[in-house]
């Protein structure tokens, strides 16, 4: 299975490619007032308005550094039989690797504050945590109007 590697600060994370629609360069975003810090803004993705999450802000509470390698990963997530596109900003989105399906080992624990952090993949000697897209919208309160999910522990992570 193809998977995308990227950095959040100095830490590498991995995301499975089957739900990635496109990798876009960093674009100018329309910021939203009263939004949590991890919400980077909206952008016009081929005519559709797509919300963009800053993963560095979400995971590490620091904004992504704006570099050429900082890119927007456009992912699809499905909820209630409808499909939405979400943009994720991450740093050093430069490499995709092939991993066998069984390389994604369970981490054994799941944090309530960060339920999107899933299994672990070994890459040589390094352990890389996998980001689970399905869990990501659970802790984002900026969702399509039909499903205003609330996130517990969201305020705690930001402070």
């Amino acid at each position: 299975m193809l998977a995308l590697l990227f950095h959040i600060g100095e830490v590498r994370y991995i995301i499975k490619c089957d739900r990635i629609r496109e990798i876009a360069p960093m674009v100018a975003l329309k910021e939203a007032p009263q939004a949590p810090a991890y919400f980077a803004g909206y952008f016009n993705y081929r005519g559709a308005i797509v919300p963009v999450i800053d993963l560095c802000q979400l995971i590490q509470n620091t904004p992504c550094r704006l570099r050429l390698s900082t890119r927007i990963i456009l992912v699809e997530y499905r909820r209630n039989a409808s499909s939405h596109i979400l943009g994720l900003i991450a740093e050093r989105v430069t490499e995709a690797v092939k991993k066998p399906d069984d390389a994604f080992a369970s981490a054994g624990i799941r944090s309530r504050k960060a339920p999107y952090l899933g299994g672990i993949v070994m890459d040589e000697d390094e352990m890389i945590q996998c980001l689970e897209l399905d869990r990501l919208p659970d802790c984002i309160d900026f969702l399509p109007e039909s499903e205003a999910a609330t996130c517990e522990g969201d305020d705690a992570t930001r402070d």
Partner: peptide, 25 residues
């Protein structure tokens, strides 16, 4: 080679790409 991409964004880069991404592929 990858480190070459660790440069700061050029001034007009974001606006330029915002326009490209907004149009049809």
């Amino acid at each position: 080679g990858r480190r070459l991409l660790d440069q700061e964004l050029p001034q007009t880069y974001r606006n330029e790409w915002a326009g490209i991404m907004a149009s049809e592929k």
